[in-house]
Design a protein around this nucleic acid. Structure first.
Lengths: 207, 207
DNA sequence: GCCGACGGTGAGCGACCGCTTAGCGCAGCA
DNA sequence: TGCTGCGCTAAGCGGTCGCTCACCGTCGGC
């Protein structure tokens, strides 16, 4: 899967779009805290403390604790969708595009595990309207992967029984990396990305 | 994958081992609440209310809220391990045993989604000694699946690049069903079990 | 050199948390 | 009938939560 190395999976230092600096520090602190303990187990005092501020400082930049989660989730989903779109819209066979999409998506979930954890597992903590917005982004994520698989089936490259079910399984496999991946463990994000690309190509019966 | 229908995936009404009746009602209420909102977002008042009791009644049967989670997690892991062991120790080819293990394991995660959610996603809410106990059970779960895959490789039935990595991916795929499966959606637990068994056989290159 | 704007702090409000305790109603038994 | 044990409740304790508010230091513009 060496072609997959060309899309980075999001290694560039993120959150640069969050300004001013104090707001970004609070957001990064919130990502770490939410990923470690979960949204509901994290206190606003903990977030502010990690950012080197008093508890009240949080409310100068964010209206509520939930707005922090919403902003994190929105930016994270945008990034994940961007990674998939970049891979899906490249030139090449469906096989190459699917391998590229899976390996870069997995590299992001492993390499930026703290962010991915919050993005993928704390959706239920959002209110109804914020959750609805995020679910719209998730449908777009699903559509990108399904599109590549449909292309492969139409081109005779893939042999798939159930396109939607397989799409769901492929995404599920990639997303769950954020749950089990351990940055101190024996596997690098790149190695997991390559292995998963190979496994997914087998799942779709790539020729 | 019709042979997989023979192991049930845990359809029998569970929690029958929890007595007396009031303790079981509290535990079932806790499973529902933890699955819906997460452990930290669930209050002891909510659990007791769902069981039709006053908040204080909980502490007659359980020392703490965490003991409830521990008991749920322990019983759930025992059940999941039992399902895998039953499939792994049947007669037959590695291919048949792996298909059986995956389909019954997935049926349990889909059909008993509320329990599976708590079991698989609330591990971090346990204290150190309880978590260590549960992690021991998880290593046994991993060993059962890895055992079947190793048998298949040794018998020349499977073509696997990375046995441990593939084991991790197979388990990850099955476990994540508890996150996305919707009991009101278009798929039955049986259908997902059959699809996933087929996908996993492809992942291991079953002949 | 004074001034308003703004990012930040210390103290604390009301609510709600996990959990405890004193006591109540009732079934079983002499 | 009186006593005892037990499952359960009403009330509430100490603590922490998300969040607010009055105030402060700094810094560019005049």
């Amino acid at each position: 899967m060496s072609t997959a190395e060309e899309t980075t999976g999001g290694e560039a230092e993120p959150w640069e779009e969050v300004t001013p600096d104090a707001a970004r520090r609070l957001l990064v602190a919130a990502v770490e805290a939410f990923a470690e303990r979960g949204y509901h187990a994290t206190t606003t005092r903990d977030i502010a403390g990690r950012a080197g501020m008093s508890p009240a400082a949080l409310y100068i930049h964010y209206k509520t604790k939930e707005e922090l989660l919403h902003r994190i989730s929105r930016i994270g989903h945008d990034k994940a969708l961007d990674i998939l779109r970049t891979a899906a819209r490249r030139e090449g066979t469906a096989k190459a595009r699917l391998a590229d999409a899976v390996s870069s998506f997995v590299r992001w979930h492993a390499g930026r595990r703290t962010t991915a954890r919050v993005v993928q597992y704390e959706l239920d903590a959002l209110g109804p309207e914020a959750r609805a917005e995020i679910l719209g982004l998730r449908r777009q994520v699903d559509a990108e992967v399904r599109g590549i698989i449909e292309d492969g089936v139409a081109a005779g490259e893939f042999d798939v029984l159930d396109v939607q079910g397989t799409t769901l399984a492929v995404l599920s496999l990639c997303i769950d990396v954020a749950r089990w991946f351990n940055i101190d463990g024996p596997r690098t994000p790149e190695a997991v990305g390559d292995l998963y690309a190979e496994l997914v190509l087998r799942m779709v019966g790539a020729k």
